[in-house]
Design a protein around this nucleic acid. Structure first.
Lengths: 343, 343
DNA sequence: TTGTAGGCGTTATCAT
DNA sequence: ATGATAACGCCTACAA
């Protein structure tokens, strides 16, 4: 395992290791000629500096980690493009790493912060409730993008940026009610959901209440334990259950676009039609809903704006060492073919 | 920046650092009592070992990297689950890292291999042609999953595992021909594609030729430069172009499922129907095609099998220090509603 | 079973 | 502008 190290390069160039280091890191006080020479030798010998050693020694690194939960979440690609652009603009480095469901995101973050001497962290696609103690461990500013949850820990630099899930969900229900629907079903997250699922459900309930429509628990279906939440399959299964109940309803709000797609399919397989038999609406504004037939009414999250605001907040905290305020964005109601006026 | 280090813990426990190290790493020769005590103190002080230091010192690490290109590719989640399971079974660690389009995957891999003392690498979702020299730099066994490309470099431990894109594509075309279609269009990748796109096109052409059907270049549409390849939008745009040409055709093969979905939408917006006016087929077997209305005929890639075989090959190479053979799997033709018999 | 000391590859400090 | 050298935090002989 004959690894080339900085010493080898130094010897090969007839200079000291510190000079090589200066060449690698673009330090100012180095003779341009020697630098070029060194760089050439480095190329020739395919020398690549060992990052562990660098990180160990460095005190700062100008790098930001983006920690993604649920890699298959279709949101992320557009957001990541924004992050990338802004981070490069600030002349920072970044890397993307996945966190799987049975890892504790804060623990991973703390470890990485030490290992890589991070300047900041973006959490994407899920963030659980954490103890103050855990949060305080993470001495690096971070922003949680797409989730709202603030448990408000003092002197801990973080910020949440998201859509106002409750308000948007209410808006969607309002729209259906405006179309004349009174019996509106909800395909919800799992029963014990304490996060986005609960907020969206609250929005739904609040809209109904405001219009004097009683909430019928039989029209609320929860994601079964053996289904992945927010998945097409969960929507498919829930919609089947709902239709079997033979309750009367004319519209369905799905907790997410994917769920809406699954629900539509269940309707078709049942020999009925959307929107003629049931109006169905989703939530998120994924491209898939535009291409679906019929196109699906949904609330579009302003992902690019959320991403941009997230990263701005992060840099603010890095620069000013002071908490950036949480931010909630407005969604956009996309009125499409899967919902229609009745009555 | 008062970081807790192994020395602090040692002092706190009144033992030497090596004892703490033994406790952390589950070494056998340590008194269980002292170990428990140390572990408690570690918990209490929230000590987390610095990975850079560990990796620097370590000679081996039993960890495998999964390098993912195109994070938004809908394949990956099911494959990653398989990787995870197998890797854990072998008592290795792994992590997932994203590579963006303007990074050179081999360079990243070489850097990571050094930094983390990797035992192996899985490349997922794209792999370019690389020079022998570059490949040889990477002294760690690797497997490329989902792509076939072998440029056959000696004494370099790697292996490709994928579906036989050409054969499966031919099969799909055969099926359509069997249904009576003669004028079959192809929605293809970009014109200069040298990878999967080309293979699938070859399969299409070969099927037509075998059946004595002349290849009409006007029925082949290429992904425009300003469209993302394999995207719904590209399918939408290409199908529009195709219909504008007013050429006669009865069936369409899309280079991927997403492209097929976009194509269907274009048909609907044109006031026509699938499959009554056009039969449309995709490739990949993504869940989305099942939920689409009409459900889309496609070739399903056996992703779990591919993943399993990939990781098996990787461990084989790690253990035996000898190249594992490339492997090509059969796809499964899913005959669904988007295609029909004519004539 | 435990502690001491040296070194992993780099960067930072201090001379020169 | 350059070079020697001491850390960085950990692991691992080796000694005790």
């Amino acid at each position: 395992m004959e690894e080339v190290t900085i010493k080898d390069i130094a010897r090969l160039c007839g200079v000291g290791v510190s000079t090589v280091s200066r060449a690698i890191n673009n330090h100012p006080d180095i003779n341009p000629e020697t630098r070029d020479h060194i760089l050439n030798i480095i190329k020739e010998y395919n020398y690549i500096p060992n990052n562990s050693a660098r990180n160990l020694k460095r005190t700062e690194s100008k790098t930001i980690a983006i920690l993604v939960k649920a890699i298959d979440n279709p949101f992320f690609s557009s957001m990541i493009r924004v992050f990338e652009k802004e981070i490069k603009y600030e002349r920072f480095d970044f890397f993307l790493q996945h966190i799987d469901n049975n890892q504790d995101e804060i623990e991973v973050a703390i470890g990485l912060a030490k290992e890589k001497k991070l300047m900041g962290i973006v959490f994407l696609g899920g963030f659980s409730e954490h103890s103050e103690e855990a949060l305080r461990q993470l001495k690096v500013p971070f922003v949680v993008s797409t989730v709202e949850l603030d448990n408000s820990v003092e002197d801990c630099l973080y910020s949440f940026v998201s859509v106002d899930d409750k308000r948007e969900s209410r808006r969607l229900a309002d729209y259906l009610i405006g179309l004349g629907h009174r019996r509106i079903a909800l395909l919800s997250a799992q029963k014990d959901d304490e996060s986005i699922g609960r907020l969206r459900m609250e929005g739904y309930k609040s809209a109904l209440s405001q219009h004097g429509i009683p909430i019928d628990e039989d029209l609320i279906v929860y994601t079964p334990k053996d289904c992945e939440v927010y998945s097409r399959r969960s929507g498919y299964v829930m919609m089947q259950q709902l239709m079997e109940r033979e309750k009367d309803f004319t519209a369905v709000i799905a907790i997410s676009d994917m769920v809406a797609v699954g629900a539509c399919k269940a309707v078709f397989e049942n020999g009925r039609r959307v929107p003629e038999d049931y109006s169905i609406a989703g939530f998120d504004g994924l491209p898939e809903t535009f291409y679906y037939e019929p196109s699906i009414t949904t609330i579009k999250q302003p992902l690019e704006e959320i991403a941009e605001s997230s990263i701005k907040n992060l840099f603010y905290m890095i620069r000013h060492e002071e908490k950036a305020p949480n931010k909630k964005f407005e969604g956009e109601l996309l009125k499409r073919e899967s919902t229609r006026k009745i009555g």
